[in-house]
C-alpha cells in the first residue's frame, strides 16, 4: 500500500514546481503584481488619457476628442503661482522637519540606552499613525481665535499665527515630522562609532564632525524622509482647506477643477505633482535613499 493518492498528487505537484522555479515565481508574483498593474497603473493610465480629451462646456462631460489644450492651460499664471507656492511650502516643511528631527533622531540612535530607544521608537510611531484628521482638527482648536495658543500667549501680549500660510506651515511640519524622524534615526544608527571617533582623533570638534562626517552620512536618510514630507504636502487637499482656506495649493486646485467638473484639466494638472514626485523618487533611488527607508 502506497501513500493515499491525494498526498502523492501534492508531492508530485510540489516536485514539479521544484523543477520549475520560474513558474513558482510566476504563481507568487502574478497575483500581487497583476492586481497592482491592472488597478493602480491602469488607473493612472486612464487619468493620463483623460488629459488629452476635451470637455463639453455645456454639460461638463468629457468628449473623447484629442486636444493639447489642457496642457497649454498649465501655463496660466494661477496654476504656476499655486504650483510654486506649494513647492515653497513643501521645501519649507521639509527643511523644518529635518531640523527638528535631527536632535531627537540623534538622541535615539546614539545616546539613549537600548530600552529607552525602543520606547522612543514606539513614542514616535504612535503619533504618526494616530488619526490624520484629528491631528488637523487639534490644530484648528489650537490656532483658533479663542484657542489654546492665544490663551497661552496672551499673558506675554502675543498672538498666534491664526489660520493662514504660517499656520499651515506649522501644521504640515507637525503632521509629517514622524515621517522624517524614523528614517533619520535608522540612518544615524547605522553610522559606525569608529568613524566618529576617527574624526575626533584627527582633531575635529563637535561642529566639524557634525558638518563633515555625520551630515554627509545622513544624506540618504534625509532624502528618504523628504520623499514623505514632499509627497504628502503635494498630495494633500484637506489640510490647506482647513487651515489656510483663503490660499490655494496644488491639491485644492486639482480637486476644485475635478469638481467643476473639468476632468481633462484636472488630469493634466495632476500630472505635475506626479511628475515632480516620480523625478524625486528616481533621484532618491540613485542617492541610495531606498536602502534607508
Amino acid at each position: 500500500m502506497g501513500p493515499p493518492p491525494a498526498r502523492s498528487f501534492r508531492r508530485g505537484l510540489a516536485a514539479w514546481m521544484e523543477r520549475h522555479p520560474r513558474l513558482r515565481l510566476l504563481l507568487l508574483l502574478g497575483l500581487p503584481l497583476g492586481a497592482l498593474v491592472l488597478i493602480y497603473f491602469g488607473s493612472l493610465a486612464i487619468l493620463f488619457l483623460n488629459a488629452f480629451w476635451q470637455r463639453d462646456t455645456f454639460t461638463g462631460l468629457v468628449q473623447r476628442d484629442f486636444t493639447l489644450e489642457n496642457f497649454l492651460d498649465l501655463a496660466r499664471p494661477v496654476f504656476i503661482t499655486v504650483t510654486l507656492r506649494t513647492l515653497v511650502m513643501a521645501a519649507a516643511v521639509t527643511l523644518t522637519c529635518a531640523a527638528i528631527a535631527f536632535p531627537i533622531s540623534y538622541y535615539m540612535a546614539r545616546v539613549a540606552s537600548p530600552r529607552v530607544r525602543g520606547a522612543m521608537v514606539v513614542a514616535v510611531l504612535m503619533p504618526l499613525w494616530a488619526s490624520y484628521l484629528i491631528k488637523i482638527y487639534s490644530w484648528k482648536l489650537i490656532l483658533s481665535e479663542d484657542g489654546v495658543l492665544n490663551w497661552a500667549l496672551s499673558p506675554f501680549g502675543l498672538k498666534g499665527p491664526g489660520f493662514g500660510e504660517v499656520g499651515l506651515w506649522l501644521v504640515f511640519t507637525y503632521l509629517w515630522l514622524p515621517y522624517m524622524i524614523l528614517p533619520l534615526f535608522a540612518g544615524l544608527e547605522r553610522i559606525p562609532s569608529s568613524v566618529l571617533e576617527a574624526s575626533a582623533d584627527l582633531g575635529a570638534r563637535t561642529w566639524t564632525t557634525f558638518r563633515r562626517v555625520i551630515l554627509p552620512l545622513a544624506i540618504p536618510a534625509l532624502v528618504a524622509g523628504s520623499i514623505f514630507t514632499f509627497s504628502l504636502t503635494l498630495g494633500d487637499y484637506i489640510t490647506p482647506g482647513q487651515i489656510a482656506s483663503g490660499r490655494q495649493f496644488i491639491g485644492n486646485l486639482i480637486l476644485a477643477d475635478f469638481g467643476v467638473p473639468n476632468l481633462p484639466l484636472a488630469a493634466a494638472e495632476a500630472l505635475v505633482p506626479l511628475a515632480i514626485i516620480i523625478t524625486y523618487l528616481v533621484i532618491a533611488r540613485r542617492l541610495g535613499a531606498f536602502d534607508a527607508l
Binding site: 497592482l36 488597478i39 509627497s231
Partner: peptide, 21 residues
C-alpha cells in the same frame, strides 16, 4: 519600487485616478 509607488505618490492623484477608472 512598484509596490511602494501607490503609497508614495500624491494622494489626490491616486484618488482621482481610481475615481476616473
Amino acid at each position: 519600487f512598484l509596490l511602494v509607488l501607490p503609497i508614495s505618490l500624491p494622494g489626490v492623484v491616486t484618488g482621482m485616478a481610481l475615481s476616473t477608472t
